[in-house]
């Protein structure tokens, strides 16, 4: 066993496409934790997150030939998982009415907090992980996705740029806006 060379993800999916089911299991082992962590940040519920990641792998299993070697395997699977998580979230948000009135703005409408008022009330460095997770959950989708990819999964700008199919420069500016939005949301939640 220890003699076996470590195969890349792309080699494993190629082997699976050629009919090797063990290669699929190896990919599941490599990605299950990462993906559960990823999807959990969207859905904020462990059972749902696991379900969604199971769906992700089932999709990979059923549509193995949809993968083409032009993309990294991780990009492909993150895209599938992210799409599933976000559409589940949209379903949920349609069902729920949010109490926060400012959740309707979209990606383009971000304005920094007016520095003239309110900011004094922020208590520095005292946000608990749980509060931050709630704030991420409450963020509008584009902000939420970018925060999770960048600040939780810690993917590179380049990788995020392929997953979301937007230019690198846009990724960077969205990361910045999303972080400010998160910080702003936290200060609202705090009040």
């Amino acid at each position: 066993m220890s003699e076996k060379p470590i195969l890349t993800d792309e080699q494993l999916i190629a082997a699976f496409q050629a009919g090797d089911e063990h290669a699929f299991v190896e990919l599941v082992d490599r990605y299950k934790d990462r993906l559960v962590n990823f999807v959990y940040r969207f859905l904020h519920d462990m059972t749902d997150a696991e379900d969604m990641v199971q769906e992700t792998f089932l999709k990979v299993y059923k549509n193995k030939h949809a993968y083409r070697e032009i993309a990294k395997f991780s990009t492909w699977i993150y895209t599938i998982a992210g799409n599933l998580a976000r559409s589940e979230l949209r379903k949920r948000k349609r069902r729920k009415t949010y109490t926060m009135s400012d959740l309707s703005f979209d990606d383009n409408e971000f304005t920094p907090v007016d520095p003239g008022k309110g900011t004094e009330a922020i208590v520095f460095n005292s946000y608990a992980g749980e509060e931050i997770m709630k704030a991420i959950y409450a963020l509008p989708e584009p902000f939420q996705t970018i925060i999770i990819l960048r600040d939780i999964q810690e993917l590179s700008y380049e990788h995020i740029s392929t997953i979301l199919d937007i230019p690198m420069g846009t990724v960077k500016s969205r990361v910045n806006r999303a972080r400010l939005k998160l910080q702003e949301t936290l200060s609202y939640l705090k009040e």
Binding site: T119, I122, F124, A128, I132, I147, D151, E154, Q183, L186
Partner: peptide, 27 residues
Amino acid sequence: REIFQSLSGVLETLHNLPSVKATTDFT
């Protein structure tokens, strides 16, 4: 300055969040 400091705190917490894992019977 306050926004910047607050943001840094948020990011620090965010980057140190314990990650969750798949349950043992996942596979």
